[in-house]
Design a protein around this nucleic acid. Structure first.
Lengths: 226, 226
DNA sequence: TGGACTTTTGGAACATGTTCCGAAAGTAGC
DNA sequence: GCTACTTTCGGAACATGTTCCAAAAGTCCA
């Protein structure tokens, strides 16, 4: 006897590595060394396998990250949401946002083609919540998808900009003026704001604008087809 | 006599290459071979210089792309916008959006840290238009920045998702179902949509949702501090 | 026992962005 | 002319994601 009991009825060389081991090693690296250190070669080294072997258990680096993200979503996203449609939409969007914001390396895969289709069930429940909330508020299914997509784009943009501007001092540091080198006489409002811009841009206003967006989208939808 | 007249009063080895030449060569490569072919080595080869020399005239690949983008913005963004505040905001946002959508490789630099601060004047005029429109509508300067940031995030997200999903067939092709592998019994709304999702997601709804967003933001701002 | 087939493994190689460091080519002052 | 100094140039090298291809290690059937 040579193979373990799970190798029954299976042909081919028995695997020495599993997808779960790879995901676990990736999580270990992220937790221990920081997520910038998660490279394919390092991941392979952590497991004592060749770098190219990783590609037999995971399609891409992207694929790896999406699976890690789904695991994170399973542990983070709470399934209970408010019953009232508008609040339900807002709460689901905020849940998605906060989950992504706490997982900065999600930025690398957020815009992958077909990203939504590769989400796990906990994440999809939030999508469902937004769509269902919109329908319950009186939207048609098509309008509900429209509502979700708009919120999704806004969320993606916020997360991406936020992630890439992490590590910046909130107030003026490097550059002398924020809009340096431009003819400020033609930009009176920006000129008047002056150095306040970085401070204002550092504020977390996701929720506030989200509410405005949801209000606007729902009003628009129910006005178009009441 | 050896140096040209512009090298008067300058010390050091006279440059054989200029930033303008590099930008021109980059544009040439993009137009001729497609923007995926724009690599640092290829760009250097196009000019007959060493790859590392490029880095003496341009800080980064990012830097290069931002400068190209600013040139594009100068030729694309029209300076005349509607006078009415709300329409002015919408028109400026649409101008930014369409300009970026026509420049797909902008996606690589859109989320660069301090991106807005590195924009050229034509682009900043659009930022100014949004902020000024918000102020003219009754917003405080702080609220106006908030309005702009929200619109900016939404626009960035739309552009990035759009860019990365380019080249997809609008209707069902590869994957059997869009939300495959998930327990659809808990996702009734998504299940009901079924295969319609890809078609709905392929629609260009930027303008429509933008209007809703602007309406919601302006209403929220004037309600908070009338 | 032995061939056919299948799956896993991993070394070599490639293109990419980027940094290091030394060489080249000028000017400035003596 | 000679020595400093400054600026530009570019080859070598590195880390990265990824693909190619051949070897390894099993099962299955005659």
């Amino acid at each position: 006897m040579s193979g373990t009991e799970s190798s029954r009825g299976r042909t081919g060389r028995p695997p020495l590595t599993s997808r779960e081991q790879i995901l676990a090693a990736a999580r270990r690296i992220i937790d221990r060394d920081g997520w910038e250190k998660l490279t394919v070669r390092r991941l392979a080294a952590e497991l004592g396998i060749g770098a190219t072997t990783v590609y037999h258990h995971v399609r891409d680096r992207e694929d790896l990250l999406i699976q890690l993200l789904n695991q994170h979503a399973d542990q983070t996203l709470s399934p209970d949401l408010p019953a009232e449609p508008r609040e339900r939409i807002v709460a689901a969007a905020v849940a998605i946002h906060d989950s992504l914001a706490a997982w900065p390396w999600a930025a690398e895969v957020l815009t992958t083609d077909g990203f939504l289709g590769r989400l796990g069930e906990s994440a999809l429940r939030m999508v469902e919540a937004v769509v269902a909330g919109a329908v319950d508020h009186g939207c048609t299914p098509e309008q509900a998808v429209h509502v979700f997509r708009a919120i999704w784009y806004y969320t993606v943009g916020e997360i991406l900009v936020r992630t890439h501007s992490e590590g910046r001092r909130p107030a003026g540091d490097g550059r002398p003026a924020f809009f340096a080198g431009a003819d400020l006489s033609r930009l009176p409002r920006l000129a008047a704001l002056g150095d306040q811009w970085p401070a204002l841009a550092a504020r977390d206003t996701y929720r506030e604008a989200l509410r405005a967006f949801v209000d606007g989208l729902l009003a628009q939808a129910t006005a178009t087809a009441p």
